[in-house]
Write a protein that binds this DNA or RNA. Sequence first.
DNA 1: CACAATTCATACTATAATAATATGAATAAG
DNA 2: CTTATTCATATTATTATAGTATGAATTGTG
Lengths: 145, 145
Amino acid sequence: MKISTKGRYALRLMLDLAVNNTGEYITVKSIAARQELSEKYLEQIIPMLSKAGYLKSIRGAQGGYKLSKTPKDYTVGMILRTIEGSLAPVACLEDEPNECPRYDQCVTIDVWKQLNDAINNVVDNITVEDLVNKYKERGTIDYII
Amino acid sequence: MKISTKGRYALRLMLDLAVNNTGEYITVKSIAARQELSEKYLEQIIPMLSKAGYLKSIRGAQGGYKLSKTPKDYTVGMILRTIEGSLAPVACLEDEPNECPRYDQCVTIDVWKQLNDAINNVVDNITVEDLVNKYKERGTIDYII
DNA sequence: CACAATTCATACTATAATAATATGAATAAG
DNA sequence: CTTATTCATATTATTATAGTATGAATTGTG
């Protein structure tokens, strides 16, 4: 029941692009440095987000990435599912209709449905903007103290 | 973000013992048959539940297993954690106090905390008794129709 | 007492997933 | 034309998953 490093890094990457957005394109190199992540590993994550239409890129020198839309338009769920696939706690919830030969007798599926709903309810109701705000709040508090 | 087969089977095993409880000890063989699971695989799961004190056993011919306590005393969370370890979506939530060198800068941890709370809230509020009741309801409905 | 049924304890195996690193081609700015 | 960068793919090491296999220890029954 763990989120993979790719999923976690993808979220940090999106947040980094949101926080450091100045209109300019941002290099993987600088993201990797700020986030203390492997540049090459990020280069493996980025195409997944690009294909989903979440990132705009420019190649070549002075190239880089930026978010396609505003931070408010990305939920944590969108990002995690792009990287992890479905967040359902059991695979059988992914089949619609459910094809399990034991489906009629299955009682535990209700547990998994509730878990699934609870998970989705969290990740689909937090946006990257929320995280940016939290980041900024935190910065302010540090400054005051 | 998947529950392992061991976790799922453990839940079915506990439910099977609850539903089929007559006071007698129940053999792995019969559980495996009813649940359509590998006997040998169940024999790998059972010791984990036994060590946690959830099962009583008798060895030898006419031996078998039964629940140590009433179904109401087992939450889904107890069972899953016994098999899966922590259900936290990221490992860093398991360290108390958190040892991540990036903890102060970390914004995404709030996402993981919310997810963790949501997951725990579900699994810690469903008991095996709840599942037994659901099983019986289902049986009744089938009978009426 | 022997035997059959069972729990109990370990070892083994095959496959897939995870978490990267490595190599290098394509592109574009200066 | 050189350098910085994205883009594409291959490779590798480690761990986890999902079992199967072997056999010892125990105990009720004929």
